[in-house]
């Protein structure tokens, strides 16, 4: 089972929920930190990293001795990542390349071969029984989705996989949510929290994935997030109050369940609630078909 922990708005406590949930579960559990631009889960889990791997994207390398400057590559490239200048030179812009392979295939002279651009690294390790994997986007690299997809390849069937997704509603978060079993949306009861939550719910619904909410700093702000959840029939699966002790513990990189062990029960209850929700959705879908 794969659970993605996401949030339209950043800083709502997504990583807190993902890491605490993962450490509370027993059995075959993995945490995949897919927030590759700003990965934070390792700061709380402090896993022993056992394996580091560089991830690359394929980009064109042009052999100018074979190139006849026909311009076919520049024509097929939708991303202006390869241009032919004045019939005398070809310039690939590797940082713009989406690795579609079009130029390689279209070149009539076989003058283009595959090179590599570094996207970042994937680090794997363990914290006790918990398997940990995260990606770190190289500083200066613009494209995170290919690295996110690579991190997700570590998901093993049969395991419970908790994904810490990036914030937002565009391609990076889609890469971290597409095809998962459940999306847990962490929000806060403020106007910004509500606005970004409605966007995130919209994205989750486009993907057709069942979802539920965690409301963090639940006693700040106003009631509009709860009203919205009721209207949209979104289950609120957990609430975390604002507590300066929690904020301070998180600021030091401590897990909630370490400083306040009573929370372990609540995270287990959260997991049960997700399982219950999934069973409910499955039954509903079965009845519909």
């Amino acid at each position: 089972m794969i659970i993605s922990v996401a949030s339209g708005k950043g800083g709502t406590g997504k990583t807190t929920v993902a890491t605490n949930l993962a450490v509370c579960l027993s059995g075959d559990v993995q945490l995949l930190d897919c927030d590759v631009e700003e990965p934070n889960a390792h700061l709380f889990l402090r896993p022993a990293i056992q394996h580091v791997e560089t991830v690359t994207a394929s980009v064109p390398l042009v052999d100018l001795d074979k190139c006849t400057f026909c311009g076919n590559c520049a024509e097929i490239c939708q991303f202006k990542a390869i241009v032919v200048l004045g019939g005398a030179t070809v310039l690939p812009f590797h940082e713009l390349c989406h690795s579609c392979g079009g130029c390689l295939r279209v070149c009539p002279e076989g003058a283009i071969r595959e090179g590599a651009r570094e996207l970042g690294v994937i680090e794997r390790g363990r914290r006790d029984g918990l398997e940990f994997v995260h990606g770190r986007l190289r500083v200066g690299e613009a494209m995170s989705p290919p690295l996110i997809r690579k991190v997700r390849e570590a998901a093993r069937p049969g395991a419970v996989t908790v994904i810490d997704a990036p914030p937002g509603t565009s391609c990076p978060v889609i890469a971290a949510m597409k095809g998962v079993d459940f999306v847990l949306l962490v929000t806060e009861p403020t106007p910004f929290g509500l606005h970004d939550l409605t966007l995130a719910v919209g994205a989750v619904r486009i993907l057709g994935i069942p979802c539920g909410l965690v409301i963090n700093r639940a006693d700040m702000g106003d009631a509009r997030v709860r009203d919205y959840a009721a209207r949209e029939d979104l289950p609120i699966l957990m609430e975390i109050p604002f507590d300066r002790r929690i904020a301070e513990a998180c600021s030091r990189g401590e897990l909630l369940v370490e400083v306040m062990p009573a929370w372990k029960e609540r995270f287990l209850a959260l997991f049960k609630a997700i399982e219950g929700r999934l069973a409910h959705v499955r039954a509903e879908r079965k009845a519909a078909s």
Partner: peptide, 18 residues
């Protein structure tokens, strides 16, 4: 001023440097 905030700030400083 959190471990996450500091980690993320360092990366964005490196980006502005870049």
């Amino acid at each position: 001023p959190t471990v996450s905030g500091r980690h993320d700030m360092e990366r964005v400083v490196q980006l502005s440097d870049f």
